[in-house]
Design a protein around this nucleic acid. Structure first.
Lengths: 107, 107
DNA sequence: GTATCATTCAACTACATGGTTGAATCAAGC
DNA sequence: GCTTGATTCAACCATGTAGTTGAATGATAC
């Protein structure tokens, strides 16, 4: 535990399950109720509800009430933290690559 | 399980742990042996070895032998699959946002 | 081939996760 | 206030994961 970023932990954990990625893709297109989401999967309602809670905890989605239903809404900027983190690896590697000249000179 | 992408599962699972992200950041800058990596953490050697195996399984890093040591090397393009997936969510949301006009017309 | 250093494997513990079922909650409609 | 529909909670089971320790392997140096 060095770069203690709980938010990143939560986001990557949420994205590590294909059912959750599928749900996220769904609500990225159309906001919909939990019941509507659950219809598309063989899992029980409760299981879907749990997956949605994981996405919510990672702040990838949020909920709003519409009568009896809970409407699931994507939080658009929430994935930025993950995207930016991934870019950072690329940048580091790029820097290292650009320093190859120096390394070769030492030979 | 809808968009059965085991590779994405592995990559996001690997990135969901801050120790592994830290290791990945380290080897993105400089390639180094497992022993050198382990020195920076309070965990046992075996624990670090396990973390590195998770990163290897996700194809984020690879290993090369140098005498007695195993040198850990980042696989630069391996994160693309994750980055591209994240971009897709953004695109979907963008499309939906651009269609707001039509939705408002229906009102 | 023996000693040594670097790493991995095996066995184990503790805890988290993904799934189930059935009861409980909560808002709406009558 | 009762019923119904939508969702969540609680309890439980099975499996996976992160960590440990100690033994086993693999490569080098002598």
């Amino acid at each position: 535990m060095v770069e203690s970023s709980i938010q990143l932990d939560l986001v990557f954990t949420a994205l590590s399950d294909s059912t959750r990625r599928s749900i996220l893709a769904r609500v990225a297109e159309y906001e919909m109720s939990i019941g509507e989401i659950a219809q598309h999967y063989k899992l029980t309602f409760a299981a879907i509800s749990k997956h949605i809670k994981v996405l919510e905890k990672a702040n990838l989605i949020t909920k709003r009430r519409r009568g009896k239903e809970q409407i699931v809404i994507i939080v658009p900027k929430s994935l930025d933290v993950a995207r930016e983190h991934i870019e950072r690896y690329a940048d580091m590697w790029e820097d290292r690559f650009n320093n190859l000249d120096k390394i070769l000179e030492e030979k």
